[in-house]
Amino acid sequence: MLTGKQKRYLRSMAHHLNPIFQVGKGGVNDHLIRHIEEALEVRELIKVTVLNNCMEDRSEVAQQLAEGAGAELVQVIGKIIVLYKESRDNKKIELPV
């Protein structure tokens, strides 16, 4: 579980990132979750965009992605979801205590 200070730090790091995944009318599926897990292992912090044609609620999509990928939900703002998961092999981000 991330503290408020850690979430603020991750939000500041994510500000400059571009979204690398999009959730559309197909919604959340196993294929998308597997790709997000792989991307989190390499990058640790990613952004996901929820498109307008997605029929599900954005906060529900965020919860499904976080639980499915075993990641921490950092932020949902507008159509953007920020996810964080500490990498086993490529640890780059050092969280504040």
Rank of each mutant, 00 (worst) to 15 (best):
28 V>Q: 03
10 L>W: 13
97 V>T: 06
26 G>H: 13
5 K>F: 08
47 K>H: 07
90 N>K: 13
52 N>V: 00
44 E>D: 05
16 H>R: 14
34 R>V: 00
73 L>N: 09
16 H>N: 11
53 N>W: 03
30 D>C: 04
49 T>V: 06
91 K>W: 14
94 E>Y: 08
60 E>Q: 10
27 G>M: 02
59 S>Y: 15
75 Q>I: 07
93 I>N: 00
84 Y>N: 10
55 M>K: 11
59 S>M: 13
7 K>M: 14
59 S>A: 07
36 I>A: 09
73 L>F: 11
78 G>Q: 15
79 K>V: 06
88 R>F: 12
61 V>E: 11
25 K>Q: 15
64 Q>Y: 02
13 M>G: 04
84 Y>S: 01
50 V>L: 13
22 Q>S: 07
14 A>Y: 04
43 R>A: 07
71 A>I: 11
78 G>A: 12
93 I>K: 00
73 L>P: 06
39 A>N: 03
12 S>F: 06
55 M>F: 04
71 A>Q: 04
68 G>W: 00
64 Q>W: 11
48 V>G: 02
47 K>I: 09
18 N>C: 06
16 H>E: 08
90 N>D: 13
60 E>P: 08
13 M>N: 05
95 L>Q: 01
85 K>L: 10
3 T>V: 10
92 K>I: 03
87 S>C: 01
79 K>M: 15
61 V>M: 06
57 D>E: 14
22 Q>G: 08
49 T>S: 03
73 L>T: 03
80 I>V: 13
44 E>I: 00
44 E>A: 00
40 L>F: 10
89 D>S: 05
46 I>P: 07
91 K>Y: 02
32 L>D: 09
71 A>T: 04
7 K>F: 00
34 R>T: 15
2 L>T: 03
17 L>K: 05
91 K>R: 04
73 L>K: 07
50 V>C: 00
8 R>I: 02
59 S>E: 15
63 Q>D: 15
87 S>H: 08
78 G>N: 14
46 I>H: 09
27 G>P: 11
38 E>C: 08
43 R>S: 05
27 G>I: 04
26 G>S: 11
31 H>K: 15
52 N>H: 14
43 R>W: 11
93 I>R: 03
15 H>C: 11
64 Q>P: 06
71 A>C: 10
53 N>C: 15
73 L>G: 06
63 Q>Y: 06
48 V>I: 08
